[in-house]
Design a protein around this nucleic acid. Structure first.
Lengths: 200, 200
DNA sequence: ATATAAAAATACCAGTTAGTATGTTTTTGT
DNA sequence: ACAAAAACATACTAACTGGTATTTTTATAT
C-alpha cells in the first residue's frame, strides 16, 4: 500500500514537471532527460512508470491541461446566478487575472492543439474532448440565459459558444508576441461588443 | 549574372521546401537535413546560403508566411466596393475556400506564433509585423465603412479588428482537431452575428 | 586560357534524442 | 527471515541534431 502511494506520488511529480516544461518549451522539444532532471529521478524511473513519451503527453493533457480549462473556464459557468453576467465575467475576468508568465506563454491547451492537433489521433481525441466539454458548458449556460430571459432567444447556442472559444484561444496565442496588454484591451472591447449583441 | 540567378533560385527552392515542412511538421522538429533532402541539394549548399536555421526561419516568415496572409486576408480588404460587404466576404469566403490540407494543418502564421511567439525576439518581431499589417488594413477598411455609412460609427475600429483576427486564428487552430467542417459552420454563424452588430 | 570567387558536395563533430538492457535498492506478502 | 515484485539507477544504443572544415565543381572577369 505504501508502494502504491509512492508510485502515485512519483507519477504525479513527473506529470507536474512535464507540464511546466511542455508549457514553456513545447512538447516535442522537451526531452525525457530534461523532465527527469527536474524530478531528480532517473530515466529508468520514467520508463518504469510510462511506456513512452506519448503516453506521458496524453496523461498531461488529460490531467493537467484539462484541469486548467475546467477550473478556469468551465466550472465557473455552472455556478448559480444570472447567466449573462456569468458569461461576461468569466471571459473578461479570467483574461485579466492571468499572471505575466501565463500571458507570455499562451494557453497550454491551445499550445498543444497547435503543436499536436494535426499529428496523432490520440492527442486529437484528448484535446477535442476538452473543447467539447467547454462548448457543452457554454451551450448549457446560454440556454439557461434564454430561459431566464437574460440572453436573446434568436441566437444559435452552438455558434456563440464556438465563436467565444475561438476568439479566446486566438488572442491567447497572439498575446505572446507582445510585451504589454494593449492587444488584450482591444480584444476585451471587441468581446464586449459581441456580448452586447446576445444580451436581451 | 547567371551565378546570381542560380543563387537566387536555390535560396527560393530552400525556402519553398522549408515552408512546406515547417507547415506540416513544425519549425523546431524539421531538420536542415530533411529540408535539404527535399531540395536534392546538400547540407553544404544550405550553409553556403544561410548562416543558421534561425536565419532561414526568419526568411520563411517574412517571405512565405507573410505573403499568404497578405494575399489571402489583407490585399482583398483594399479592393474597391462596399466596406462591410468586403469585410464579410473576405472572412467568410477565405475560410470556405481552404483546401482540406490547409484546414487540417491550420494557419501557418498561427502555427509559428504558437510555436515561436514566446521564444525569440526576432521571430516575435517578424510575426508581430504581419499581425500589425493585418490589423491596420482592417482598421482602415472599417473607417472606410464608417465614412460611406455601411459600418456603425460608435464601434471601436481597433477592438473590432483585433476581435476578428483573434477568432479567425483561434478557429484555424481548433479546426485541426476535427475531421469535418461542422465546427467551421458554427464559427461562421457566430461571425455573422458579430458582423450584424457592426453593420449600419 | 587562367586565376579567382561563388556554389555545392563530402565528411565530419560533439551533443541530444527516445528507448532498452541490466543492474541495485526498497517494499511487500508470507 | 526471505523470496518475489515493484521502484529506481546506470550504462548503453542507434539515429538524429545544428553546425563546421575541407574539398570539388562551376561560373566569371580579365
Amino acid at each position: 500500500m505504501q508502494q502504491e502511494l509512492k508510485s502515485e506520488f512519483t507519477k504525479q511529480l513527473i506529470i507536474d514537471k512535464a507540464f511546466n516544461l511542455f508549457y514553456e518549451h513545447g512538447f516535442k522539444t522537451t526531452s525525457i532527460d530534461k523532465i527527469m532532471k527536474e524530478t531528480a529521478l532517473s530515466k529508468g524511473a520514467f520508463y518504469h512508470h510510462y511506456k513512452s513519451k506519448k503516453e506521458l503527453g496524453l496523461e498531461v493533457i488529460q490531467l493537467k491541461v484539462q484541469k486548467r480549462v475546467v477550473d478556469g473556464m468551465i466550472a465557473p459557468l455552472k455556478e448559480p446566478g444570472n447567466a449573462f453576467d456569468i458569461l461576461e465575467s468569466v471571459f473578461i475576468n479570467r483574461l485579466k487575472e492571468f499572471p505575466f508568465y501565463d500571458k507570455q506563454h499562451g494557453c497550454p491547451m491551445n499550445n498543444f492543439i497547435n503543436e499536436l492537433g494535426d499529428n496523432e489521433v490520440l492527442y486529437q481525441t484528448a484535446l477535442k474532448s476538452i473543447i467539447e466539454k467547454w462548448k457543452a458548458a457554454l451551450i448549457e449556460l446560454i440556454e439557461r440565459g434564454k430561459r431566464e430571459n437574460s440572453i436573446k432567444q434568436e441566437i444559435s447556442n452552438q455558434a456563440v459558444a464556438v465563436y467565444l472559444i475561438s476568439s479566446f484561444e486566438g488572442i491567447r496565442g497572439i498575446r505572446k508576441l507582445y510585451d504589454n496588454d494593449a492587444i488584450l484591451v482591444d480584444y476585451l472591447s471587441g468581446l464586449q461588443l459581441y456580448l452586447k449583441q446576445i444580451k436581451v
